[in-house]
Amino acid sequence: MTRNLRQNILVYALLAVVLIVFMTPIYLIVSSSVKPSPIMFQKPPAFLFTPTFEHYHDLFAMRPFTKFIWNSLIVALGSTAFSLTIGSLAAYAISRIRHKRMNDVAFWILSMRMFPPIAVVVPYYIIFKSAGLLDTPLALIIVYSTANIPLTVWLMKGFFDEVPLALEEAAAVDGYGLLATFWYVTLPLAAPGLAVSAVFCFIFSWNEFLFALMLTGSEAQTATVAVMSFWSSDAVQWGRIMAGSFIILIPGVIFVLTCQRWLVRGLTMGSVK
């Protein structure tokens, strides 16, 4: 009994250390975004202070930031919709075709996600430049789909595999063709997979920085790039950076809190079930 109690206390003490270390940066983003600039770096840090929304005000008073958020939204939603459509069709095919090479196709698609983006930034830059697509949301939608399609394929394949074939056969006997069966039976049953894939696609696109930096200018700039621009060596506007950061991290946090049980599957691409 006492041994157990001592053990539990030790476990909770270690947990407390872990949580403090891992949560402090997040706490700093939130608190600094509402901290008056003069006490931003005050030591010891002020835990109790009158929160100010001046940073948020500054952020949005500057009209383009709203536009940058719009850009982020358009790009993220566009890429999500595109990747989901194309990706889930491919996933369904991979899940249903019985062929010894199908595994290779699936792995090939997955590997497309693993290449370092920097390696293709140069060609993208040149290709989009000559196509007149630099600094447009379309360029980013296309680029992000290269990461989002493989993810969707891989996730949705798992969900389609779990839809019993007998249901599709029942529909076939009842008089439905493949497309109708897919639309009315298979897809609704894989709906949780669609939701999870959508969220992953959205968050990846929303968070992305490198391509957004390279391929956009003032027109199609996204929120992550905009936040970075508040950093300049002469005057770092920490308040605005933190306010912008907080806004950017909201979707990810909501995702973790609502569907963390899918995170494992999504992030490890199925290598951990």
């Binding site: 949560m23 936040v227 992030l267």
Partner: peptide, 25 residues
Amino acid sequence: ARTLLMIPMMISPVIVGLVWLFLYF
């Protein structure tokens, strides 16, 4: 605790860079 600890993964790397810059400044 498991849920909370997953949050860092979902944060944009550029934001991670910025908040650590804030810490290292």
